[in-house]
Each structure stands twice: as C-alpha cells, then as structure tokens.
Write a protein that binds this DNA or RNA. Structure first.
Lengths: 225, 225
DNA sequence: CCTGGGCGTTAAGGTTTTATCAAGATCACG
DNA sequence: CGTGATCTTGATAAAACCTTAACGCCCAGG
C-alpha cells in the first residue's frame, strides 16, 4: 500500500485529501506544520509527500531541503495561484511536481500516480539466489536451500533488503542507518552490529566466517557471493 | 550538454523555446508533428522532451505511449488551460510533468531542470580497468583479473580514489596528503610512502616494479597504465 | 669516497572499530 | 493487563587499522 504524507495546515484541504486518498487505498498520515512534517517524514517513511507551501512555521522550500538532505521521496507541492517565483524555488529545491490551488482532485491523483511511478524504477530481479539461500524481495521471504523458510523480524528484513538491493556494492554505515532507522540514527552504529550479527546467525552457513554479509571495516557492509 | 527535443506545431512557441533554451546552453531539436516527433526521439535520443498535446496528426497521449515503449526519457507536456481530463490522461500515459499555456519561461525552465535532475542520478563513470585489475569507484571494489576481490582499508581507498579520479595526471604529494589526511598533514609525506607501498603490495603484479602506481620523484604520484 | 635527501620497506604500539553476549525496555496482541 | 517477541542499550573481548620510528637503498653533489 502506498503511503502518503500530507503536510498542510488547512483543515478543509486535509480533510478532502484524506477522504479521497483513503478511498483509493492510500495510507495517509498528516502533519500540520513544517517541523512536524519533517519529523513525520523521518518517522513514517512515506512513499510520497504532498506539501503545502503556505505553512505557519517555516518556508516550504526549507522543508523540501530538509527532506532532500537524506531522502529522495517524491514531493508534490501545493500553493495558491500566481506565485510564479515560488514555483521555481520549490522545484529547484528538489520538489518533483507542483499543483496550484484550487486544484482538481483528479489532477492531483494523476500527478501522485506519476510521481510514485517515477520513483520506483526497480521492477528488476526481485529474487536473489546465493549458494545457501534465496531472498525474494517481492514476497518478503527468505528460503533456505533444501527448503524451509527463515523468518526475519521487520528490522532484520529492512536491513537485508537495503543490502540485497545494493548487492555487490558497498553500503556505508550511514546509509544503512539512515534507510533502516531514519536520519536521526546516523551514528548509532551499534544497532548495525547487533542486527548484522542476527542476520548472520540466521543466514550464514558459518556465522563467524561471514560469506554473504561481509564487513568492510571502517566503511560499511556489503552483500555479495 | 543537455539535449532537448521540442515537439510543437506552433511556430511562435517553437521560436521562443529555441531562443531561451539555446541561450541557456541546451541543445535543441524540433519536430512539428507527432510522427516526426517519435522519429526524432528515436534518432536523437534527447535527454528530455517537451511535447505539445495539440498536434495536427495524432493525439498527444499516443506520442507519449510511443516513446514510453522503449525509453524513459522525461516528457514535459504543454497544453491549453482547462483541459483537466487531458492532463490526467497525459500523466497516466507516462508524462513526467505538465505545463499550461500560456506559460512563464522561468517555470518551464525550472520544471525542465527538475525533470533532468530526476532522470540522471549517475553523472560519473566510476569503473576503471587496467590489465591486471578493475576499480569500481561506486561499489568501492577492486577485482583482480581472474576473479577475487582485493579488500582495502578506508585510507587505502581514499588514496586510490584520488589517484584513479586523476588517472594519467600527476598528483602532487601535497594534494594527496590534503585530500586524504586533511590540510594539517601537508608535510607528512611519510604517510604516503607507507600507504602507496601497501597499495602496491595489494594491486601491482610486481610491487617492486610499480606499473600502475608510479612515483614521480620529487613531485608526487600518478595512476596510469 | 663520503654524505645527505628522497624513497621504499617493515614492524611494534596504541587507538579505534567490530563481534558477541546478555539484560532491561518497549511494543503488539490477545 | 499479561505475555512473548522485538528492539534498545551497555559491557567486554577480539580484530583491524593508523601512526610512528627505524633502517636500507639509490643517486646526486661535494
């Protein structure tokens, strides 16, 4: 289910969006100012954001920059008609699209679909096989060779997913922490050690001699066979 | 240089776009109907397309679908005001953005920049091959010809990275020390000797007769084959 | 022939980073 | 409200890494 974060302080707009989006099977969360919008983006990891530029507490482009610092989640911006320069500033700050109020719900929904579609360009090989187990990204399953599911906790799964999507490539500790725990946890590298160890215990044939979940000391981890 | 394909049959718009885009250092090509637009897209491989929906020969969404069949080049659509359903159809067909005529050139340019930025996440050419090994900057990996990873420590990587990014060029000791250890270490040329030696031991077929990591006495080092 | 500077090599010490374990806190669910 | 699973946090031992210093080589210049 696609998760949408709406950042807007006008109750009528929030209400309209919530109803329409929920009816179309989006999962909607709402923030009513910039600061809580940034917090919500970090916490909820929405698949797409709808952001009103006329927020009470901070400039819309600041919010965009705040999110763009660590995430490439698509951002669709809302603003009143005629603010040409604002449009330009928002797009240059990293917004993906722009809708003028009052807007037609159909248009907004179409732009939303377009944004989400653009953002997910990875319909590639959702199944990765190694010599000892198979990871099915789409089905969220790990199957041991010779049969038998390996069950992972949500955090373990997220971590494995990031590594597998970048298989062969080194993923820095920062990036892992950011993508799994959020930008506020960039320095909590202990979490990584604990969870990498758990994954190794579940996946590796010899957990003390990791073959698939490899450590690159001082840099990060790498999934590879 | 970014290549833009404009598909529009209104001479005044074509002229305005050509002037403005050329002035901003885009390379502009033009087609005046849908059929030649599709042909031009296939032939020129533009980095981004600007497409007017009101073409004489075919429906705009058909053009979009035609391009989307084989390419993910960003498409920005132009159309007259008020055709709400047309917007929706175009976005759903695979357009990336939508601008209503009459439009402000600033806005169009901003949307163009946003579209190009989204589409090109990889500006680098991060793989360098020599006769004995391959350096993949993005994956932070060195692979020996004949298979087998060579693992490097963080400092070794940084040093190798600076040299490889400047391959063929002489890099002074100062520059290396500054980029790897920081400006305070400009004179610690002993560090360089230690780490260059380590890299040679790991990479060179004959470490005592360096072929890829060459010393330029009194000056610095050079990566080359 | 001697001397000194630049470079290559090596290895020990100290520091930082990582693996592993275990217990307390928190969350989800009935 | 209780229970089990999951997540956080801290401690400790092991491993990897960086720094530093010493020594030898080569070559140019005195």
């Amino acid at each position: 289910m696609t998760r949408v974060l709406v950042v807007d302080d006008e109750p009528s707009i929030v209400r309209a969006l919530r109803i329409n989006l929920t009816a179309r099977n989006y999962e909607v969360s709402v923030a009513i100012d910039g600061a809580s919008g940034l917090a919500a983006a970090a916490r909820d990891r929405p698949d797409v954001m709808i952001l009103d530029l006329g927020l009470p507490d901070m400039d819309g482009t600041e919010v965009i920059r705040g999110v763009r610092g660590w995430s490439s989640t698509p951002i669709i911006v809302l603003s009143v008609w005629g603010q040409e320069s604002q449009k330009v500033a928002a797009l240059d700050a990293g917004a993906d699209d722009y809708v003028t109020k009052p807007f037609g719900m159909d248009e907004l929904l179409a732009r939303l679909r377009a944004a989400v579609r653009r953002a997910s360009p990875a319909p590639d090989e959702p199944v990765v096989k190694t010599g000892h187990f198979t990871v099915d990204l789409a089905a969220k399953r790990v199957i041991r060779d010779g049969g038998g599911d390996i069950s992972l906790t949500p955090t373990e799964w997220q971590l494995l997913e990031v590594l597998v999507r970048n298989r062969g490539r080194l993923v820095t500790q920062r990036q892992l922490l950011q993508e799994v725990w959020g930008p506020a946890y960039e320095t909590e590298s202990n979490y990584l050690r604990v969870y990498v160890a758990q994954l190794r215990r579940k996946l590796e044939p010899e957990p003390s001699k990791p073959r698939y979940l490899r450590t690159e000391p001082g840099m990060g981890y790498r999934f590879g066979d």
